[in-house]
């Protein structure tokens, strides 16, 4: 190459799009008069065009999954957090169940004391509740950790928790009469079921109360 290195520098400046007007003018004028430099410049442009023409290739389809499989295991904590975030309903339901079961179980264990619902004409003898003959007891009778003997009449339900209903024939008060249902709860699961039924009943009231409170605010 006889021509000065300067001209080739200008070519690179041109290709970098950083050429000054002055240099560009010199380059243009030189290229018009020098066929060697013209050829040189053409070759440079051609090689760039060839490199740029290489079709854009894409990563293999399973690329991302392979990368993800290669990552170090993330902390358990975040994994759980994300699971909880993506399953809000399941989370709420299981939390509810856990708390319910816990509280009901604890009351089951705590309440080993004998107790009875208060009706004026019930007679209590040691751990036995007697509905006396000829008497009419109004309202539901609930007895915990005790026995019930029905000789009179109960206008309502009788519930015996962790106890016994003393009668000749079960559910058929020998002399007495029960207008409502007779329920005996002796097993833990029955106890839980009983509670759930009770809670469901109460929930409606609870919501009503909430609404009232909100309207005050």
């Amino acid at each position: 190459m006889k021509c000065s290195e300067q001209i080739i520098d200008y070519m690179h400046e041109y290709l970098d799009e950083e050429i000054s007007e002055e240099h560009e003018k010199i380059l243009r004028e030189h290229l018009q008069s020098c066929s060697d430099c013209q050829e040189y410049f053409r070759e440079l442009n051609k090689s760039i065009a060839l490199v740029q023409s290489t079709s854009h290739i894409q990563a293999p389809d399973d690329f991302t999954s392979k990368v993800m499989a290669g990552l170090p295991k993330e902390k358990k904590k975040t994994e759980i957090q994300r699971w909880l975030r993506s399953h809000p309903l399941l989370t709420a339901a299981s939390l509810f169940l856990a708390l319910m079961t816990g509280s009901i179980l604890s009351t089951w264990n705590e309440e080993h004391q004998f107790s009875v619902s208060k009706q004026p004409n019930l007679i209590v003898q040691n751990d036995t509740v007697i509905v006396p003959e000829g008497e009419v007891v109004k309202g539901d009778v609930v007895v915990r950790n005790g026995k019930v003997k029905i000789e009179g009449e109960v206008q309502g339900n009788v519930t015996v928790i962790n106890g016994e209903l003393i009668n000749g024939e079960k559910y058929m008060a020998s002399a007495g009469n029960v207008t409502g249902e007779i329920t005996e709860v002796n097993e833990v699961f029955e106890w839980i079921w009983y509670h759930i039924k009770k809670t469901a009943k109460n929930t409606a009231d609870l919501f009503e109360n909430d609404e009232k409170e909100q309207s005050f605010q």
Partner: peptide, 18 residues
């Protein structure tokens, strides 16, 4: 600490890096 979010980053740049 959310590893799944990284999957989306990989998707964005995988072709260029490859």
């Amino acid at each position: 600490g959310d590893q799944n979010a990284y999957g989306e980053i990989v998707e964005v740049y995988k072709d260029k890096v490859f």
